[in-house]
Design a protein around this nucleic acid. Structure first.
Length: 428
RNA sequence: GGAGAGGUGGCAGAGCGGUUGAAUGCACCGCACUCGAAAUGCGGCAUGCCUGCAAGGGCAUCGGGGGUUCGAAUCCCCCCCUCUCCGCCA
């Protein structure tokens, strides 16, 4: 959510930010809405002021037993009140019009974000590791579907389709275990070595929460809905909303939360994309990181968070590159985003496995999440950051494809073996 | 799901429908006393918005939303949440 006062102070800067995102300038429209709102407020408050004053006089008149005067005052107020409801309505409408419009405008890109129309404009930030040369590299589903056990393939899309339709998968046996091992490994790493507090949050949340992080109102169609809850599209939602409507003290910051949860996405706009395999699913597991920090610390926290996510890749010894997302490819709430893309030999390309974003005070405004600075007059908005550390389903893909052997088996990465009872190889 | 109790400022906790944005206590911040501290005394201390160059003025907010009334923290309705008991149940 943007601060209309900042837009008023610097409308051209605001419009420039929107343009960078590929959007039309909006400051003129927003300021007009704000003017209308202010006018409505002024009219309403003026009427309320006289109403209140008269009402008070009625009180003293009654106290003085001056019924005649009280009666005449009451008549006067009655006349005045005739048009107060209209003024209330127009104030409400004017305020809502502005708020609704603001609610669907994305965050502005930070100053150091490269400009570009879409993912082709992303800029490599750094790379790590060297992609292995694997002759006739297979894709993860070719490997997984070939392995049998427990009444079907260890990676079974047919069974999943029977149960739930497309974009679901059933994992069996060693693959199910490896998925669990990956998740355990990640959450343990972040909580024991990176200072994150493990959180087990609700997976179903209310409108307010999903509005707070910015999925509502624009991305309704990307989420699944139960009777009166949303299934979380990412644990960013519950973790970040933990501080909604709160005023933290400065020495509570930074707050760092990590959660290993399923995520649910409708993938409404992705029909036909990545339909093969388990790259893009309606349900997947992800280890999410969220930081709540003081504004002046958010840039360094962003670097730190990226490093925490990278540590997962390094310990798994998976080659990756970090991309700085350009203005046209960033998510709604982000002011700057780094994606980690892992090398996927079966496809011979890099695929996103993590996304680390700073949101500035954009989400904090929506959530009304503040802190009280030590040397301060009033509370200020916190800054929020979120990052995947990392997507477990995609990590499984990466492990399978990077660790595949010529005989169709897969070596278990050393860091996962303790989580898999010492198992060194699967699929054999 | 059923019955009951309740949601007031950072916390605790008052509040006959009339000048209550809200007593009181604690916490916090100034000042005084003190060599210093404690104790004590005095003063200050909610948020958002509108308006104004400013000083200031105004509006709203006592879980949220409606309503009654000239006037609502106080009365009525709906919703949310918490607690207790019952039922059901991992």
């Amino acid at each position: 959510m943007h601060d209309i006062r900042l837009i008023r102070e610097n409308p051209t800067g605001f419009d420039a930010g929107l343009t960078a995102r590929g959007l039309a300038p909006l400051s003129a429209e927003l300021l007009a809405l704000d003017d209308a709102r202010k006018g409505a407020i002024l009219a309403l408050q003026t009427a309320q002021e006289s109403r209140n004053a008269l009402s008070q006089e009625i009180g003293s008149a009654k106290k003085a037993r001056d019924e005649v005067r009280a009666k005449s005052l009451m008549d006067e107020v009655a006349r005045l009140k005739g048009y107060v409801p209209e003024l209330e309505d127009s104030e409400r409408e004017a305020s809502k019009a502005l708020a609704d419009r603001l609610a669907e405008i994305p965050n502005l890109p930070g100053p150091d974000v490269p400009h570009g129309p879409d993912e082709t404009g992303n800029v490599e930030y750094r790379t790590w590791g060297t992609p292995r040369t694997i002759a006739d590299a297979k894709q993860h589903f070719e490997l997984g579907e070939a392995w049998k056990g427990g009444g079907g393939s260890l990676m079974d899309f047919e069974a999943a389709a029977k149960l739930s339709g497309s974009r679901f998968v059933v994992l069996r046996g060693q693959l199910a275990r490896m998925e669990r091992a990956l998740g355990q490994f990640m959450i343990d790493l972040h909580t024991t070595e990176h200072g994150y507090t493990e959180v087990s949050p609700p997976l179903m949340v209310r409108d307010d929460s999903v509005y707070g992080t910015g999925q509502l109102p624009k991305s309704r169609d990307d989420m699944f809905r139960t009777q009166d809850h949303w299934l979380i599209p990412t644990a960013e939602v519950p973790l970040t909303n933990l501080v909604r409507e709160t005023i933290l003290s400065e020495d509570e910051l930074p707050l760092r939360f990590a959660a290993l949860t399923p995520c649910f996405r409708a993938e409404a706009g992705a029909a036909g994309r990545d339909t093969r395999g388990m790259l893009r699913q309606h349900q997947f597991t992800k280890c999410e990181l969220v930081s709540i920090v003081a504004p002046e610390r958010s840039a360094e926290e962003h670097e730190r968070m990226l490093g925490c996510a990278e540590a997962v890749m390094r310990k798994l010894d998976l080659p990756y590159r970090v991309m700085t997302l350009c203005t046209g490819d960033m998510g709604f709430a982000a002011t700057k985003t780094w994606d980690i893309e892992v090398w996927v030999p079966g496809q011979g390309t890099y695929r996103e496995i993590s996304s680390c974003s700073v949101c500035g005070d954009f989400q904090a405004r929506r959530m009304n999440a503040r802190y009280r600075p030590k040397e301060a007059k009033g509370p200020r908005f916190v800054h929020t950051l979120n990052g995947s550390g990392t997507a477990v389903g995609r990590a499984l893909i990466a492990v399978l494809e990077n660790y595949q052997e010529a005989d169709g088996t897969v070596t278990v990465p050393a860091v996962l073996r303790p989580y898999m009872g010492g198992l060194e190889r699967i699929g054999g």
